[in-house]
């Protein structure tokens, strides 16, 4: 059974300390809800686990089945069985969704998948997600609505069969039917033994997927690690009780000044 262990993880983004000693363990078969106010490190944790180059691990360990994966590249981590369903998936014009999916499946297989088997898998998965098949043949995420992008993330999850899937606000921007469809997919994949670490601001998704645990990240550290009843409490009362009951002062999110661009043409110089 695959296990992901985060030990004393410290992470910086562009010199700013975001995670300040996160400890967390998730095993295959578990579904963990990751909660916390905006700007306290939820997405940073997921991106750091996946190895995003903008997130610098300054201390601590990320262990997958006991092996520290910090030195592994992003693709190596993916091939081990980690998956990150992104909040804002990149658009890749000109790359067909199905070509990409097939290349991704082949990347972790010893021999290439046959055309027949691939399209059968694709057909079944798109039907399960109630997703139009043509989305699978269009350019990867290009011109997709927010909801279509999220369904496409779930399509990739189904086809790539990770051991532990991390989902970053997979329900944001989804209508009621789409949330239902995404939650059904998560539940089906749970039955296959996959582990999930799910960020969401809404109890509705968690009601539908029944997490086994809930952890709350505050000020870059895990402040609470408990049962699913935490989700309901936070949904009803917010995070204030953490201050009153646990004495943890919740730092306010710092608002960055917007970048300002003055009067230039749309030409950008070469980056060398």
């Amino acid at each position: 059974m695959a296990t992901l262990e985060i030990k004393n993880l410290h992470v910086e983004v562009e010199g700013k300390k975001i995670l300040k000693g996160v400890n967390l363990t998730i095993s295959e078969g578990e579904t963990v809800a990751l909660l916390g106010p905006n700007g306290h490190g939820k997405s940073t944790l997921l991106n750091a686990i996946m190895g995003h180059p903008r997130y610098t691990v300054t201390d601590g360990e990320i262990l997958f089945d006991g092996k520290d994966i910090k030195s592994l590249s992003v693709d190596e981590r993916a091939r081990l069985g980690l998956f990150l369903g992104m909040q804002s998936p990149a658009e890749v014009p000109g790359v067909s969704n199905s070509d990409f999916l097939r290349a991704a499946i082949n990347a972790k297989s010893e021999k290439p998948i046959s055309t027949y088997k691939f399209y059968k898998m694709l057909d079944t998965a798109t039907k399960d997600l109630k997703m139009p098949f043509d989305l699978a043949t269009r350019s990867l995420n290009e011109g997709f609505s927010g909801g279509e992008k999220k369904r496409n993330e779930m399509l990739q999850l189904i086809l790539l069969e990770p051991k532990i899937a991390m989902l970053d606000e997979i329900d944001s921007g989804l209508d009621v039917d789409a949330i239902q469809s995404v939650s059904e997919t998560i539940n089906r994949e749970k039955e296959k033994g996959r582990g999930f670490l799910i960020i969401s601001h809404y109890a509705r998704l968690f009601d539908l997927v029944s997490p086994t645990r809930a952890v709350v990240i505050i000020n870059g550290r895990i402040a609470l690690d408990g049962g699913p009843e935490l989700i309901k409490r936070i949904d009803q009362t917010g995070y204030e009780f953490i201050k009153t009951e646990y004495g943890i002062e919740i730092q306010k999110e710092e608002a960055d000044m917007n970048d300002v661009s003055i009067g230039t043409c749309a030409v950008r110089e070469a980056i060398k």
Partner: peptide
């Protein structure tokens, strides 16, 4: 990052 996070080499 997106493509490599799905297992494709850089």
């Amino acid at each position: 990052f997106y493509l490599t996070s799905r297992g494709l080499k850089e």
